[in-house]
Computed example of a mutant assay.
Amino acid sequence: MLRMRQQFMISQVSFLYPVKILVGPKQEQELESFPSGNRSGNSAASKPVNPGSLTILGLHLTILPFTKMSLFTDKKEVQRSATALGYIAHVVSLIASYLEVPLRYPLRLGGSHTYINDYAPSIEPTSDLSSNIALSTNTKPAEFPLFLEGQDATRAAYAVFLLNKDIEQLLNYIGVKSLGPRHVLANLKELLRTIQSPEYIDT
């Protein structure tokens, strides 16, 4: 019964933020039409999806500006990627809430200006165990921007990496293998597809 409720709620999220595969100039296919990996992570029976062909709410997620930012980078492309990342972050946050999974890297939602937190201590370990414990309990999270505007490209790229780790955490929770660190939308697509499949209820 709980899984049916989770499936219903997450299907609503999928309706609000559809992840689709672009198959032509203006043609998009729903993700359910393209079954991919199973719970063992074996997707040999289906052709891997090109990450560049996936969209969320009609927007592509272009990672290139996060790795090769320059004065000639298309500002509109940067804005579209930030908006897409904001959508993805909201979807991840909602799914984690419905599955009751505390995210390893919590999100501070803000649309196209969303941040992700890393609570890992950035201090060097010392021999004084008590001071280490005190520091670790009082450590403030490092916050990384899921957008490039006015931000360091390296920090933004790391934020995308952390967001994908959150998606991987949710995939692991439902017993599905991640497609890899560079497949943010593809991993999200697989997460949504698996939860909406009949197998999710049966397990």
Rank of each mutant, 00 (worst) to 15 (best):
Q27H: 13
Q6G: 01
A82D: 14
S131H: 05
N38Y: 07
L99E: 06
D128M: 06
L179V: 05
L129R: 13
G24S: 13
S33F: 12
P106M: 02
L57T: 00
G110R: 01
E124P: 00
P106V: 01
M4S: 14
A89Y: 02
D152F: 11
V19D: 12
L109W: 06
E30C: 10
I88M: 11
F144H: 14
L146W: 02
P102R: 03
S127F: 11
L16G: 08
A45V: 12
A142V: 04
G58P: 04
L148W: 15
G111Y: 02
Y173K: 12
I123W: 15
Q7A: 08
P65N: 08
A45M: 15
I174M: 02
V160N: 09
K189A: 11
P106T: 01
S11W: 00
V91C: 03
L109N: 08
N138K: 10
K165F: 03
N172S: 13
P48R: 13
P48C: 13
Q151A: 15
V78L: 13
P48N: 10
L59G: 00
I10R: 01
R108Q: 09
A159Y: 09
R182I: 07
P25N: 12
Q27V: 15
L59P: 01
K177N: 05
K177C: 11
A84Q: 07
T62E: 13
H60N: 06
G24E: 11
L170P: 00
A156K: 04
T73I: 12
I123Q: 15
L71W: 05
E168R: 14
G110K: 01
Y105C: 12
L85N: 03
Q7K: 07
I21F: 09
F161I: 07
A84H: 07
L22S: 11
P65T: 06
M1F: 05
L179R: 13
Y87V: 00
Q151L: 11
E32W: 15
L162K: 01
A157P: 02
D74S: 10
S178F: 02
P65L: 11
L16S: 08
Q169T: 12
L64K: 10
A120I: 04
Q27R: 14
E199T: 13
K68M: 05
I56Y: 01
L31S: 15
E149K: 10
